[in-house]
Design a protein around this nucleic acid. Structure first.
Length: 217
DNA sequence: ATGTTGATCTTCT
DNA sequence: GAAGATCAACATC
């Protein structure tokens, strides 16, 4: 695909962009290690009008990268321990973005296992879930706001890459978003997209508010 | 196989 | 002060 077509697809709003991202390749060159993955599951976050989006309550220091140009990485920290990664798409300033939920490893399995705590489990589980995927790619807040270059990530400095977007959307399935509570988590937002039959696709869990243990006496 | 819980802390209300 | 675009360990069936 040429650069112009790549840019055109990135300019689509998240729900339209998602199918083109399935089967596409994301790569990171971080700490001298190249990791290339193929996406199998993504979720759309449609900007300020989407109650499930971090952009719903307007621009803040945390979500500023969401409002950047298409091709920007939005990486955030949550639950006190996890990072999750998005690709910003749509028109500049619309805060449309796609959460990278799962993928399979093309290059760099040893690096991914090392980053995932020398995990020795089956390879298809290594990137199964947004926090696992971000960890496998080595992403953290340092990379928030960086651009995904068109092509494979490469040195000398840290870089991110995005390539092989599908020109026509592959066969895929859709459903409600995982982990999103409130109106944004209902069937009205079938913004989760995945490749059927891929073992790396994360198991669906409906968002359930957690009951905190009462504070100790 | 499915359900529950602890970990751990930033962000916004 | 409460919830969060989660994960892994543990309990129970």
């Amino acid at each position: 695909m040429d650069q112009g077509e790549h840019r055109r697809l990135l300019g689509l709003a998240a729900p339209e962009f998602c199918p083109h991202l399935l089967g596409a390749r994301v790569s990171s060159f971080i700490d001298g290690q190249l990791v290339v993955i193929e996406l199998t599951e993504v979720e759309a976050y449609a900007g300020a009008a989407d109650p499930g989006s971090h952009a719903y309550r307007g621009k803040t220091a945390r979500n500023a990268a969401l409002f950047g140009p298409p091709g920007t990485a939005y990486v955030y920290f949550t639950y006190g321990m996890h990072h999750c990664a998005n690709v910003v798409c749509g028109e500049d300033g619309t805060a449309s973005a796609v959460l990278l939920r799962a993928g399979k490893i093309i290059t760099g399995e040893a690096t991914v296992r090392a980053r995932r705590g020398n995990n020795t489990g089956p390879a298809h589980l290594l990137l199964s879930g947004p926090a696992r995927l971000a960890q496998g790619l080595g992403l953290s807040l340092e990379h928030n706001g960086k651009q995904y270059m068109h092509g494979t990530a490469r040195g000398p400095g840290p870089s991110l890459g995005l390539e092989s977007l599908a020109t026509s959307a592959p066969e895929h399935s859709t459903g409600p978003r995982t982990g999103v509570s409130g109106p944004g988590g209902t069937e009205a937002y079938p913004y989760r997209y995945w490749l059927p039959g891929e073992p790396s696709v994360s198991r669906y869990r409906r968002a359930a508010p957690r009951v905190r243990p009462s504070p100790g006496v």
